[in-house]
Write a protein that binds this DNA or RNA. Structure first.
Lengths: 202, 202
DNA sequence: GTCTATACGACGATAGAC
DNA sequence: GTCTATCGTCGTATAGAC
């Protein structure tokens, strides 16, 4: 595999990732083949596999790249509102939601190329939310008896689980469950200028 | 495809489903091929496909069958404790969790053989939980201002999302997030004889 | 390092014989 | 109801051109 130490290779690699992101966003996890991606890149299949170990590896790095786009790195603190907004932003990219969910399922195998990356992703997300929960507890905005770690896990689960419902249930929304949890159940105040979004449409 | 109207066919069909359930529980979604299932059934691949339209169709019916096993049909009411217990029961069948999650992702396609079935599954589950929430509100055990439907969606999301975390994070538990939501955040009392399970291990 | 050509084995699926 | 034979597609591996 290419090590990415030469300028041209680095560029090409990113171009492939961008193209693959498009293709997978359009066609989802199951609908897309390496041959499709290669064709869209103007490369042969082997040409693509020069930069990535396998199809699954490419998928893993597509998701990794996508994570870096909206929030340009850093371990900054998280506001609950930002979480809800971030999740809602996926609404127009159902293919990527499908890709993410399928990838997590595949990464149950500890040898899967995305396993460690996803494990780190969950851990870092949990720690960041944990910190935010502690802040909110100190500010007296959520009950102090709740365990910040368990709460973080619950928040992540609500966000992830909403994706499953949303993929299959047309009346579901991506951000509904998390909004319900954060605003209605935990009682945080909604950001101003926002209408009620706790319910799942109609 | 076999219509299942002849006694022998019905029996064989169920035998295939049982075998497939075993195989997928062992190997998961990606690890299992029709050929493996066929071999375990003492059939050829075409023999299996005589009973099912496609591999995805078989998968869909495996999940459907599994749903009917623990709770033998009916639209009975749901107790939150039973929900938590039911989810925890999946802990020793990670392959089926992987299968379920992968299937939901694939069923985003409205033409997927599992789409309608999963949509119905989510709807019926939501309605049942909704009813339980109303009962609890009337009994004064959870706040009356919460929308039962939104709450049901949140509960389902917490349960589903926990599966994603659990597949990738070794320290996560399947029932942790839902228990946190139901017992710690909503404040329902834990069933007696139960130790603290809200936290995710250590 | 970058990339193409080619080949291989496994897969899901179909057609048709028995 | 079940088989064999066959098809097209897939991911992947390798050899080698530039």
């Amino acid at each position: 595999m290419a090590t990415g130490r030469y300028p041209k290779g680095v560029l090409k690699r990113e171009q492939i990732l961008d193209t693959a992101l498009e293709v997978f966003a359009d066609e989802g996890y199951r609908g897309t083949s390496l041959r499709t991606v290669a064709a869209r890149c103007g490369l042969s299949v082997a040409g693509v596999l020069h930069y990535f170990d396998s199809r699954e590896d490419l998928l893993a790095q597509v998701i990794a790249r996508r994570d870096t786009i909206p929030r340009p790195a850093g371990t900054s603190r998280v506001e609950p509102h930002a979480l809800v907004d971030g999740i809602r932003a996926n609404t127009d990219q159902p293919g990527l939601v499908e890709l993410f969910v399928s990838l997590v399922a595949a990464a149950r195998d500890h040898d899967h190329p995305a396993h460690e990356q996803l494990a780190r992703r969950y851990t870092s997300m949990r720690l960041r939310i944990q910190g935010a929960m502690r802040d909110l507890q100190e500010a007296g905005q959520i009950p102090a008896h709740l365990d910040p770690d368990a709460l973080a896990r619950l928040i992540i689960a609500a966000a992830d689980g909403a994706q499953l419902q949303w993929m299959v249930d047309d009346e579901a929304t991506l951000d509904g469950p998390l909004a319900t949890l954060v605003y209605d159940v935990l009682g945080l105040s909604r950001p101003s200028g926002e209408v009620d979004r706790g319910n799942a449409s109609i």
